[in-house]
Amino acid sequence: MKKIAVVTHDSLNPLVGGGALRTLLVAKELSKRGNEVILFVPSITNSLENMPVVHLPAPRKVRSQVLSAVKFNIRLLFRLLKYAHDVDRFFVHNTIAMPAVLLVAFIRKKKIILDITDIHAEYLRVGNPSIMEKAIRPLLLWLEYFMIRQATKVIVVTESMKQQIVRRKIAEEKIKVIYDGASVERYSPEKEPKAEFNIIHLGTVDKQHGVHYLALAAEKVIKKFPDVCFYIVGDGRELPRVKKIVAEKNLTTNFVFTGYVNHFEVQRYLKKCLIGIIPRPNSLPNNLVITLKLPEYWASGTAVIASRLTGIQEIATDGKNIVFFEPDNPEDLAEKIIYLLENPDFARRLAENGREVVRKFSWPELIKQIAEYFNENR
């Protein structure tokens, strides 16, 4: 039996962040396999699924994200030094938590398995960085790839991400691609009456998610379908901008803004909507991911319209289980939405095909792959 420290900056209770559920499921699987697992995570409880929690305040996504990450790592370092003295291995989700883990693992000569669902420093190219963040962006990029290089093993979520980090001189043989998934059995494909006239964006509303493009596209859609309703399910720094666009165009009656919704409550909104949108801009970091929304939309029987991005194209086929639109083009997005509204039978076929595809991305199977790779002796 090994003692394993599972570390993430995402809150596991409540579940907040795209990688939170993935990390919690990995921790449960490692525990189920007879390991002693201790969680170094943001949480409102002292234990999760019978695993002890060393609580950490989550990094705040306001003002400087860099300073927030620095504060998080200082707190994490002290907790690791106090509570992780007899840990055999570290499982780390994303690089925000890596500086502190890397230092402790180096001192104690322990292995790190790093699970990457985002390369965070790359988002500084497309987000809304502070003056300081712009100035130190080259350093942050170098640091992130340096930390990835130090990991014993690396798990990534797309082939595109694998190739990106290989280009940064990280050994290909220690990288394994394991996609994001969904708890397919938790989702019902059944929809409420008139769901074909409802459209959803599920998840965080930050600049890299491009939700403002959906707001810009809505005006043309509403002119043709006055009763259509857009559900923006989630919160984030760009939400005020999205609300402002909607208000300026007098579209408020066609939008529902729910704010943050617990991961386990989102299904009631998915039941209301036949069409789900992934409007991410065309940028390097967005081309490296599939986003957790895609398998969740598919699992819930929701037809997907998404930006034509490289990572998503690895698992989705245009016209069969998804409809692509040109990234950063609200006019094209509006036309694709209108087409599905005019052709609800086609939208339902897309949803049915997506439901079939997502069975290959069911969490239980994917989490087993992660646990087995974690336990490989190399």
Rank of each mutant, 00 (worst) to 15 (best):
R89D: 03
L56T: 07
P285N: 10
F197H: 09
T45S: 14
I175S: 00
V228F: 09
E185C: 09
V104P: 02
L294N: 03
Y269S: 10
S160I: 01
W363P: 00
I222R: 07
I312E: 00
T158N: 08
T158I: 01
S43L: 02
G301W: 05
A218C: 12
I148M: 08
V205I: 13
I322V: 15
P57V: 10
P344Q: 06
E133M: 13
V323S: 07
V211W: 05
M98W: 05
I136G: 10
I275T: 02
R63C: 10
Q208M: 13
A58T: 09
V211H: 06
N286T: 13
P330A: 06
L239K: 09
I4S: 02
V157P: 04
L67S: 09
K176V: 13
E248A: 14
Y123D: 11
K176Y: 01
I232D: 03
V154I: 15
S160P: 01
L294H: 01
K153M: 08
L333R: 08
N13C: 12
R137Y: 12
G311S: 14
L139P: 10
P295E: 06
P279G: 09
Q163I: 01
A299L: 08
Y179Q: 06
E49F: 11
E248F: 12
E296H: 11
V101A: 07
N329Y: 02
A182M: 04
L15N: 02
A69Y: 10
R137V: 14
V101C: 05
I367T: 10
N321L: 07
L81G: 02
I275D: 01
A195C: 08
N128S: 15
I165P: 04
A217M: 03
F90W: 06
T252W: 12
K243D: 06
V87E: 00
G210Q: 06
L76G: 02
P281Y: 10
I305G: 02
Q163V: 12
T310C: 13
R108W: 07
L102M: 15
I74V: 15
K244Y: 08
I4N: 04
L141D: 02
A100K: 00
K28A: 07
R79M: 11
V221Q: 06
R241E: 08
I107L: 15
G17Y: 02
A58L: 09
E29D: 06
L124P: 03
I131Q: 11
P42Y: 11
A5T: 02
V66S: 11
G311Y: 01
H93M: 14
L214I: 14
L288Y: 04
L309R: 04
M132S: 10
E296N: 09
S31M: 05
K220H: 13
L341Y: 06
